[in-house]
Simulated assay, not measured.
Amino acid sequence: MQWNALVPELVVEDYQRSKDFYQEVFGFRLCFERPEDRFGYFELEGAQLMLLQAPGAAVCGMQRPGPKGKGIHFQLEIATLADLLARLQAADVQPETEISESWYRADAIEHGQREFFVSDPDGYLFRFCECLGERDAAVEPQASASP
């Protein structure tokens, strides 16, 4: 297994509930776990994340000041949204948004994707998307001013 350079570790309220949700609903594969630590390492189409319940280290605690997951979301590009949408419906999980088509400019190219947002049982927000390809940007990028 190749480790990603950045792997989020999400502190969850109930490891077993989250593990089941991530596997059965989101479709992640459990790579390995340490049940005694209520910890698991998961993968979905190249995306990796870790789940951890009630860590002992104070630095990881949910009582720390700050947004505790608010203001961040995780984007996962998957081959197709269809299977995930079927699993969400079977689990009676409602997406936070409708499916939309979006085009995001990167210099002179726009990257298209079908996307929607959905939350996990702890309220972590995920944007799942499937690629629609690229096209020339409708607007030319602005030139940077010289320093």
Rank of each mutant, 00 (worst) to 15 (best):
A5E: 10
L6A: 06
P8F: 11
P8E: 12
E9R: 09
E9T: 09
E9D: 08
E9K: 08
E9Q: 12
L10G: 13
L10C: 11
V11K: 04
V11L: 01
V11T: 15
V11D: 02
V12E: 04
V12N: 05
D14M: 01
D14H: 10
Y15D: 05
Q16H: 08
R17K: 10
S18G: 04
K19A: 03
K19Q: 06
K19C: 00
D20M: 03
D20F: 06
D20I: 07
D20R: 09
Y22F: 13
Y22S: 06
Q23C: 11
E24Q: 15
E24H: 14
E24Y: 05
E24F: 02
V25K: 08
F26W: 05
G27P: 00
G27N: 02
F28H: 08
F28D: 01
F28W: 07
F28Y: 14
F28E: 04
R29I: 10
L30H: 01
L30R: 07
L30S: 01
F32A: 01
E36D: 13
E36T: 09
E36G: 04
R38G: 00
R38Y: 00
R38N: 11
G40W: 00
G40V: 00
Y41K: 00
F42D: 00
F42Y: 15
E43I: 04
E43W: 00
E43G: 01
L44Q: 08
L44M: 03
G46W: 09
G46L: 12
A47W: 08
A47Y: 15
Q48C: 06
Q48K: 07
M50C: 01
L51N: 08
L52E: 06
L52P: 05
L52W: 14
L52Y: 13
L52N: 08
Q53L: 05
A54Q: 07
P55C: 07
P55E: 09
A57T: 00
A57H: 06
A58V: 07
A58F: 00
V59G: 01
V59A: 10
C60H: 15
C60D: 14
M62Q: 13
Q63Y: 07
R64Y: 01
R64H: 02
R64Q: 15
P65H: 03
P65K: 06
P65A: 04
G66E: 14
P67H: 15
P67M: 10
K68Q: 14
G69L: 11
I72F: 15
I72R: 06
F74H: 10
L76Y: 06
L76F: 08
L76H: 04
E77H: 07
E77I: 04
I78H: 02
A79T: 11
A79W: 02
A79D: 09
T80R: 09
L81P: 01
D83H: 09
L84E: 05
R87K: 13
R87A: 03
L88S: 12
Q89V: 13
A90P: 05
E96M: 07
T97M: 05
I99Q: 15
S100R: 10
E101F: 08
E101V: 13
S102V: 14
S102E: 15
W103E: 12
W103F: 13
W103C: 10
Y104L: 11
Y104V: 07
R105G: 10
A106R: 15
A106Y: 14
A106H: 12
D107I: 11
A108F: 13
I109H: 14
H111Q: 12
H111A: 07
G112Y: 03
Q113M: 05
Q113H: 12
Q113S: 11
R114Q: 12
R114P: 03
E115S: 12
E115W: 02
E115K: 10
